[in-house]
């Protein structure tokens, strides 16, 4: 584990890891944006009056929360091409991660909206606002405080889960680390370094989430 020459070779091959790191960051960023939009839309529908749409969204949430991400990504990668839909591994990753994490995000948004006192909504309606206006101008800004800490935790989970892209040879950090390690057989070095890279991405985020949580408790 401490053989210096191995570490030297690892740092000489830094670009392998840098490339994978870049893809992991890009994948996470795009999926985060898509996941946030999806969570808000599904969360809003879940809090609306339309029974049919609510049922469909509940089915979506339950299905994606209770089946593994790996199956979802492999399905998109292996099965969709048979229906004529060919997605790149990166696109599979974006769709998989945002659909999977969005199911959790939607529950968080739904709970946060329900935590805002009912009077706020009624007051907005009494001023002549419609559902969309009420939600975006009055309710959601107040729901953000409750929703932000768990959403930040979901974001950390999403970065970690982006490693599932390795199943479809997505070229992300996990995949690059694994293939570099099997080329050189320098397993411990590769995995320790990769762990540190993931840590550098996730630790600040989860510390931020922790601080937000403490603040939310105090208020």
């Amino acid at each position: 584990m401490f053989e210096l020459y191995r570490w030297k070779e690892l740092f000489q091959n830094w670009f392998v890891f840098a490339e994978g790191f870049g893809i992991t960051v890009a994948l996470s960023a795009v999926s985060l944006a898509a996941m946030l939009i999806l969570s808000i839309v599904v969360g809003l529908v879940r809090c609306s009056g339309n029974r049919v749409l609510k049922g469909i969204m509940l089915a979506y949430i339950n299905f994606f929360q209770n089946t593994p991400l790996v199956i979802q990504i492999l399905f998109m990668y292996n099965v969709l091409p048979r229906a004529g839909i060919v997605l790149s591994p990166f696109a599979c990753g974006v769709f998989g991660l945002s659909l999977y994490t969005g199911a959790f995000g939607a529950s968080i948004i739904e709970a946060a909206i329900n935590a805002v006192p009912k009077g706020q909504k009624e007051a907005a309606y009494s001023q002549g606002m419609d559902y969309i206006q009420t939600m975006f101008i009055i309710v959601l800004p107040q729901a953000v405080r409750t929703a932000l800490p768990p959403l930040a935790n979901q974001c950390v989970n999403m970065i970690k889960n982006s490693s599932a892209l390795a199943f479809v040879a997505g070229g992300d950090l996990m995949y690059r680390a694994d293939s570099w390690a099997s080329d050189t057989l320098y397993y411990p070095q590769s995995f320790i370094f990769t762990g540190l890279l993931y840590l550098s991405l996730c630790l600040p985020l989860s510390k931020w989430a922790e601080r937000l949580e403490k603040k939310a408790v105090r208020v």
Binding site: V156, K160, A164, M174, T194, G195, Y198, L201, S206
Partner: peptide
Amino acid sequence: VRNIPLLL
């Protein structure tokens, strides 16, 4: 541990 992927 919480900030490193399970896959790793």
